[in-house]
Computed example of a mutant assay.
Amino acid sequence: MSALAFANPFRRPAGALDLGPLTRGLVIVAGSVMTALCVLAIGRALLGYTPDLPHLQNLAIAIHVTTVIPCVPLGLYLLLARKGTPMHKQLGKLWIALMVITATATLWIHGLGNFSWIHIFVPLTYRAAWYTVAKARRGDIRGHRNEIIGLFLGALMIPGVFAFLLEGRLMNTMLFG
């Protein structure tokens, strides 16, 4: 295998703990695009190219955004990097903690008990976080990997897309003004 073939993440053969080529490609595209959108939105806001952001006066939104944004590139890294190392385990624990804090903060954005359809991702996040840790501790690495992929794509990327597409949402305001 040439050095260039190994560097291409779409063509690398999957190891026992690695993602298959299709899943790897989906993770790379989704994670990279979402990371770029987050950086662009934050950059626009920091440079003053957005209107006032009253969203950030809500502590729950501030906590939610502060914990969810690092989950995108960190999750991308964890899914693509070498698995099973001490670094992978420590960063994985951080990522799960950030995802749980993100989901919990969401419950208070409109006041506890005042939920919308997007709150379906909260129990899904709690469930996947629990099973991710439990399966890793049991040694069920394939199950652990599948839970992480579902959590990354399902509970992080899907709501992230809506955060950018739905008018009035903070990320939409930051990206499109």
Rank of each mutant, 00 (worst) to 15 (best):
A134Y: 04
I63P: 03
F164N: 00
K89W: 08
T106K: 03
C38Y: 13
G160L: 04
A62P: 02
I158S: 06
P9M: 11
F6I: 13
L175T: 05
D52Q: 14
G150R: 04
L156D: 00
L26G: 04
L175Q: 03
P21E: 12
R11F: 12
I28Y: 09
F6G: 11
L47E: 11
G160N: 07
V133Y: 07
P86A: 08
T173F: 01
R82W: 11
L47W: 10
I101P: 07
M171C: 09
V100T: 12
D18Y: 06
R44G: 03
N114A: 13
G150H: 08
L151E: 02
L19S: 09
D140T: 04
L22Y: 11
T67N: 02
A16I: 06
R24L: 06
R127L: 12
W108P: 03
M157Y: 10
A7C: 08
I63M: 07
F152P: 10
G113A: 13
L107T: 07
I118K: 08
L124Y: 05
G25V: 08
L4T: 11
G177V: 00
L151V: 04
A62K: 14
I141A: 13
P21Q: 14
L166R: 14
A155T: 14
L76T: 10
W95C: 08
M87N: 06
V65K: 00
G139S: 05
R11S: 15
L94T: 14
W130H: 15
G139P: 01
I42V: 15
L22F: 14
R137G: 00
P54N: 09
V27Y: 09
L166I: 14
L153Q: 08
